[in-house]
């Protein structure tokens, strides 16, 4: 890697993400300092305009909007990060096995990847999201637990988000497989797992980090869509997506309720994409934008 500078847009994106994450992490402190909380319902103070007590006003149940945005941010960012990492894990595993083994394993895994990409994913996710945990044989006590909801949405999003990383890792693994240092390791008697772990994986780290950064944005978008449709994070736990579920009916009454959560999703996703684009430029300036293109075109 040369000493190229990371583009300013990527620094801005990274800084914005860090600021959002810090605000979300420190939400309890802010709430304590400002004397706010996002759960107290005040039906005599619905749709309040911004004031000293409620800097951004209140929602349809009189809850403080700023506090709910901060808490929703915690949930949305945590789910986005967890799902992006899980998707990167699945994608790396699939791509590594396909690229290193080759032959029919490769053909099968890549057909599977093609198949997943080609499907109408959101309609299928809706069915998956509607599955009743009790009928899967999970203990009844788990039903409605917040961590189960979070785990479910992370799993769902990861289940469809791994394909880009898988294709990227496979292509890189194929290229690395025949490099001298890998052949030398093999000749020294290092087993396939050892070769993958010690020699191929470290060389994949940079592109996987870039692809994961770029997928954080998509993952947050998908989570927000599912939550908006009522199939993701369930109220009363706020997320930026589910705060918009009721916004459509209320847009006539209080546009601010629709503007804030969506605007924050927008800013977060733009920041993640700026950071990902910038990292990609730095990693491979010539292939600006073409990596994602090739990964999607399956080349």
């Amino acid at each position: 890697m040369t000493g190229r500078r990371v583009p300013g847009s990527a620094v801005a994106g990274g800084g914005l993400l860090a600021a959002l994450a810090a605000a979300a992490l420190l939400a309890p402190l802010f709430e304590a300092a400002l004397g706010l909380d996002g759960e107290t319902v005040d039906l005599f103070n619905r749709f309040a305009a911004p004031s000293a007590a409620h800097p951004l006003g209140t929602d349809e149940l009189g809850r403080d909007l700023l506090a709910r945005l901060l808490r929703g941010g915690r949930v949305s960012l945590a789910v986005g990060l967890a799902a992006a990492l899980a998707a990167a894990g699945i994608g790396t595993a699939v791509g590594l096995v396909a690229g290193m083994r080759g032959g029919w394993v490769d053909a099968l895994l890549m057909r599977l990847t093609d198949g997943v990409v080609a499907l109408p994913l959101l309609p299928l996710l809706i069915v998956l999201a509607a599955v009743d945990p009790a009928k899967l044989g999970l203990p009844a006590a788990w039903a409605g637990q917040p961590w189960l909801e979070l785990g479910r949405i992370v799993a769902l999003v990861a289940l469809v988000g791994w394909t880009t990383v898988a294709r990227l890792v496979r292509a890189q693994a194929l290229a690395l497989r025949d490099r001298e240092f890998v052949i030398a390791a093999r000749a020294l008697g290092v087993g396939p797992l050892g070769v993958a772990r010690r020699h191929v994986l470290p060389n994949l780290l940079a592109p996987v980090i870039v692809a994961t950064t770029l997928s954080v944005g998509n993952v947050i978008l998908l989570e927000s869509v599912l939550s908006f449709l009522g199939l993701g994070i369930q109220p009363p736990t706020p997320s930026w997506g589910n705060m918009l579920t009721n916004a459509q009916e209320l847009v006539w009454r209080s546009p601010a309720l629709a503007l804030w959560p969506g605007g924050l999703i927008f800013v977060t996703v733009i920041a993640a994409n700026l950071l990902g684009d910038g990292l990609q430029d730095r990693l491979d300036p010539r292939a600006r934008g073409t990596r994602a293109l090739k990964a999607r075109a399956g080349q």
Binding site: L221, S224, V225, G241, V251, A258, I270, N273
Partner: peptide, 22 residues
């Protein structure tokens, strides 16, 4: 283009409703 791939699709729809219908 960056804004286009980053905007939540349902929020964009809400904004269009807000602007053109409301």
């Amino acid at each position: 283009a960056l804004a286009g791939i980053s905007i939540p699709p349902f929020w964009l729809a809400l904004l269009l409703i807000l602007l053109f219908a409301v």
